[in-house]
Nucleic acid binder design. Sequence first.
DNA 1: CATGTAATAT
DNA 2: AATATTACAT
Length: 430
Amino acid sequence: MTCEQVLSVEVTENNAGSFPIGVRILVVESDPTCLRIVSKMLQVFGYEVKTATRATDALHILREKEDEINLILTETHLPDMDQYEILEMVGELSSSPIVVFSADNNESTILGCLFKGAELYLVKPVIKNDVKNLWQLTYRTKLKTAVSGEGSNTFHGGSAEQNTSSLTVGNPSSTMGMTDQKGKRKELEETDNDHEYIDNLTALKKSKLVWTNELHNIFLQALRILGVDGAHPKKILQHMNVPGLKKENVSSHLQKYRLYLKREQDGMQKTMVRDCRPSSTFNPQGGPMSVHSLGFVHSPTHVNSNYNGILIPNYVQVDSQSKQLCPSYPNSNHTEIITTTDGSFSSFDQKGKYSVDEHLNQGTTLSNTGTHGPTFLGNSQQQVQFPLPQPQPLPEKEDESEILDIATMEELELLAMEKEFLEDLKNDLW
DNA sequence: CATGTAATAT
DNA sequence: AATATTACAT
């Protein structure tokens, strides 16, 4: 299923204790569909979800068992209460952090909610990345209150530290404790749902690595440095020096890469048979190949295939390139790779995102938004150098997607992901 | 063990 | 389609 794409929570050996399981979140939302979707999203991530469609219901729940709610996610435009009134009243009843989610992106509204005590303001539509780490708010406020003296805000079921056992693989049954909540969805065939939950929770760990052009370039660089003889997964991994990258990743990629090389080679031997080559992703230009006499492939600017590039004979020394990884945005899980070349080559710094990072795991696998095309390297004796930015022959280039800037691309990605998520929800639930 | 390869799964 | 995973041979 697409669980892997949807599910990704920061869970590692080190911080496995910090996990939403055991965090009870109250979702207040008047629109039933929205309520269900958000609730499902939260549940999938391991939250225990309680719901209310009216402000009075929410207040009632809080009055009844206030100490069991660790987090409150609420819409402000509720039919039976004023916009900020809900915040005030909830704030009186509960010390748990309040997160507002609303379609209203008016600045004054946002500031108003924050001023009225909201910890966080999310603009609808809410996506998985918005909700998956909300539990951290509870942790933060818990620390806050602990420091300030009163440790009243204790988690039910010990989610902060002890619950790691429930996550340790192989013991999914212990996580079932959370499904006994208010048999809301009890009516449905529970086996399916439960299995789904188990699968979901156990699948939380893995997110797929995406070989961006940048990552692939590092890969190629390692190959060149190591030479054909030493190009084994372990060494490659070392030389790539990308945090979180595992040998299996390299192995898999290497395998496919070699496969590609072989195919490429075979294709070459059939010198210029017209349509012998299908317009695969490796040869996105389609028809006649755009290979110059030197075997230097001029890459189109929009290729997302990873197995491009050709291994250069090992005598080719490549400069001493230094790789450097640095976090792009503080709250972003993505990593920006900056590779610099010295001297003779124009130093290029490509921004790219890849989802390696098993440590600070994240799930969003943004496709490449590289500005440069993939770097094809010559396979002839002559070495062709890395970045080949030549935008000149682009008058008739179609592909409107290139025109979009990165921000827009990312936005579209997120929207697409959300759409996909909602689709899955529909398929699974209805 | 680590690796290469094919087949298969997600 | 791109990666991951597995099985098996080396």
